[in-house]
Design a protein around this nucleic acid. Structure first.
Length: 351
DNA sequence: GTCCGGTTGT
DNA sequence: ACAACCGGAC
């Protein structure tokens, strides 16, 4: 027996003892497996379980989905997120009923044509429901295989040729349904992101990452994509005080205070953006504006270049609960995002 | 607040 | 190649 068969065998034995008992693992119905796989995309198991149970009760067959109005479909998806998944199930169900006699096609090329069937879902449905020798590559599988082979780099589609080559070697002829699920389950329960539980891993002995003690470094953590954002800030001064406003209670920088302003749109000049933002936020006309300085602020997900302008307005906004006129020496009373603090620090004290 | 993740459309 | 889609875990 070669080493590949041993890999699959070990995984299989482990899965038999340690896999979770989940509703969609108690059925062979391709339709139900399809629904569960779509629900499980981008969504945790615990969130899916109640939706899955309810869905199957509401729509026991693909025909029930196909003839249901979209409103009812969406109602049953409400709260799960990524609503195009539900719409795609609806469309695909109708195609399956009309063009495939209500049977999910078993040809990967045909299946791939249906909306919502990307590479993952095609592999999942064909292998889990029909025990086809099709690979499944999801985030779990990428991580497990990258560690087995000690592949450097980020976990992403660019790794798939190597992953595929490995899977092609180790996938069993029969029982690939269990093998694929075992691989994913191992990724979810043992070969987890960050610090994996190598001491209880059934395939530790073949794991190159473990051998090199690099299991927590593989895959490399995602390079963050720093987006650059250009924004204008309006410094509006009256009687030695500056105008600030409070952000909404929800979302980014909730309840913090900031100067009026906003993103510069594509193809827009900073000055035009300034006039537009002041009009939108304060319903006021800028009479004249002077560029003062630029401030850079880094966040986790983006880098903001704040263009600070001093403005003269045709008429000045009134103060209320969420809009204030504040003297330089009183800014420390107002919580602000760090980018705004940097601006305040460059403002002179009135003498 | 940060991180995570399949499919689709650009 | 990359952003948009969304909610849950932490």
């Amino acid at each position: 027996m070669n080493s590949e068969n041993i890999f699959a065998k070990k995984l299989n034995l482990w899965y038999r003892r340690h896999s979770r008992d989940l509703p969609w693992r108690r059925t062979q119905d391709p339709y139900k497996i399809w629904i569960s796989e779509i629900m499980l995309q981008q969504t945790t198991v615990t969130a899916v379980i109640p939706y899955y149970e309810k869905w199957i009760k509401e729509f026991p067959t693909v025909q029930d989905v196909a003839r249901a109005p979209l409103q009812k479909i969406l109602k049953n998806w409400q709260g799960l997120g990524y609503y195009t998944r539900a719409k795609n199930i609806h469309k695909s169900a109708q195609i399956i009923v009309e063009q495939y006699q209500g049977k999910i096609p078993q040809d990967p090329k045909e299946l791939k044509k249906l909306p919502g069937f990307g590479p993952y879902t095609v592999g999942a449905v064909l292998s889990i429901a029909f025990d086809k020798r099709q690979p499944i590559i999801d985030a779990n599988v990428r991580r497990v295989v990258m560690r087995q082979l000690a592949v450097a780099g980020y976990a992403g589609p660019s790794q798939d040729p190597v992953i595929l080559q490995f899977l092609e070697r180790v996938m069993p002829q029969k029982g690939n349904n269990i093998f694929n699920q075992a691989l994913m389950e191992l990724g979810a329960l043992v070969c987890r992101n960050g610090e994996p539980a190598c001491l209880i891993c059934p395939v530790q002995s073949t794991c190159q990452a473990y051998k090199k003690e690099r299991q927590s470094l593989i895959p490399a953590s995602q390079k963050r994509v720093i987006k650059e954002v250009e924004a204008v800030i309006a410094l509006i001064k009256k009687d030695g005080k500056y105008f600030i406003q409070r952000r909404p209670s929800k979302g980014l920088f909730a309840d913090l205070w900031e100067f009026p302003g906003g993103k510069i749109e594509k193809g827009e000049s900073a000055k035009a953006a300034l006039y537009r933002e002041v009009k939108e936020e304060l319903d006021a006309e800028v009479r004249s504006a002077n560029f003062l300085f630029q401030v850079q602020q880094f966040y986790t997900q983006f880098k903001a270049n704040l263009h600070v302008w001093s403005c003269e307005l045709a008429s000045y906004p009134k103060a209320d609960e969420t809009h204030k006129w504040v003297a330089r020496r009183h800014f420390d009373r107002y919580p602000m995002p760090s980018g705004s603090v940097k601006i305040v620090e460059r403002l002179p004290y009135a003498r």
